[in-house]
Amino acid sequence: MAVGTLYRHFPTKTDLVASAVAASIERVADEAEAAGRRLDDGANALEELSAYLARVVDACAANQAVKAAAQTLGADGVRSGALDRADVALARLIEAGQADGDIHPDVTVADLHLLCGSIPTGGSMADRARWHTPVMAGPTTRARPASA
């Protein structure tokens, strides 16, 4: 793409970064919806949620430059239909896991957003795997008793 064409599509750096962030959110939504389809085919909700979070961790690490640029330019607040799609798919996974008794009854999609905010994007693959293990203990019923 020539520079002129680039500027016609993205008049500012913020527009370019916002587009990259939006594309990343699309991929996250696609992953969440794919997990939902596997759930429909009989997959375990907790396993799908765990695998989804592992993929998001890897994607965040791979896209850390985009995330840093988005924060610097103020484009990280992008809210799109793709994020809404991801939230709907994640809510289905959570509800199914709660129905199975594997996910704590008070876990919400907002909790997953909080967890994702703590992803160690600058760490090694081993650090990301270490993050995943204790984080997945939080939403599960196996890790804590039901609240009174």
Rank of each mutant, 00 (worst) to 15 (best):
Y52Q: 03
G117S: 07
D106G: 06
S124E: 11
H9V: 09
A99R: 15
A70Q: 07
A32C: 05
A148E: 14
F10N: 02
R38M: 03
G4E: 14
G4N: 11
V56M: 06
S124Q: 11
L53H: 05
G42S: 03
E31S: 08
E26S: 09
L115W: 14
P105W: 05
H113K: 08
G122F: 09
A51C: 04
T5G: 07
S80T: 04
A45K: 01
I103F: 05
T14G: 12
A59S: 13
A2S: 14
A110D: 12
R85V: 00
D102E: 06
D106I: 05
S24P: 02
A59I: 06
D41I: 10
R130T: 14
V78E: 13
D41Q: 15
M136D: 11
L6M: 14
A91S: 10
G42R: 03
R8G: 02
A137E: 14
Y7P: 02
A99G: 12
M136G: 09
N44S: 13
A75P: 00
E48M: 05
T133F: 07
M1Y: 04
A43D: 10
T133N: 08
H113D: 10
D106T: 09
L46I: 03
G4S: 15
V56Q: 03
A54N: 13
A43E: 07
C116P: 00
V66K: 07
A35N: 04
R27W: 07
D15E: 15
G81D: 12
R144V: 08
T140M: 06
A20H: 11
W131L: 05
A129P: 05
Y52R: 06
T141H: 07
V56Y: 05
A18F: 02
A29C: 10
D87C: 07
D111M: 13
A34L: 09
V107T: 13
I103L: 08
E31Y: 05
G36P: 02
V17S: 03
S19L: 07
C60L: 14
R92F: 00
G122R: 13
C60G: 15
E26P: 01
G42T: 04
